[in-house]
Amino acid sequence: MSDLGPLVPRRRDMHPVPFDPDYKTSVTRSPRWPLLSMESTPSEETGPRFGHSLIGPLDNNLILNWSKDGTPAIGERILMHGRVMDEFGRPVPHTLVEIWQANAGGRYRHVKDTYFAPLDPNFGGCGRALTDEQGRYQFLTIRPGAYPWPNRANDWRPMHIHISVFGHSFGQRLITQMYFEGDPLIDRCPIAATIKERSQLDRLVAPLDMAMSRPLDFLAYKFDIVLRGRRQTMFENKLEGM
């Protein structure tokens, strides 16, 4: 395995704040003391790799991957697609992308979700894909509904798809959420608002992508993901005092 260099330090100001009173659960689940910082080591610079043998033919098709008899899931058919790259714009190929979401009515297939909206018998709500050589991925799914959640008295989550990405090293691990262009609930959402840098929140909002939409079939939304990069220089010195 070649040495690809240390991970670029995370810019914590470009991420959500861990503690935000408007998102009540974060109050008791956010560390109070500073994180311990150190240059990455092989423990963070390596990570699990997953092969194509892992992925089943319908894993990236949420419209059909829970259907028992081929009946498609109910909802507005969409293609979610994009590229995974690093901070230097390099594609991140063959990396695992996993998604999960509510159904078209805003209900998750989960014992703890007791929202009034009905379950769709043909919709499970999870999918996975490996990026290709250029770091591209695609999912065919339905647009999830907005849903209410117990936080402040009347909070609603905007339409969103949860995304988990591995990258090529354990230190690149990322979980985020994709929102949809034009959703008025984004600006009212305390979870979206944990990101204080507006440009960073804007980057979680996927634009409608008519070029990739398929006539008479599905609309497309484009969602690119940037993972931490690796610094590569000819000058790697031992740190003073270490």
Binding site: W100, R109, H162, I175, I191, R228
Partner: peptide, 20 residues
């Protein structure tokens, strides 16, 4: 250079996506 995509919470149903 690009900026890393912002994180968001995995939420209460992270298990659906990661350990279905």
């Amino acid at each position: 250079t690009l900026v890393e995509t912002a994180s968001q919470t995995g939420g209460p149903y992270v298990h659906i996506g990661c350990i279905p």
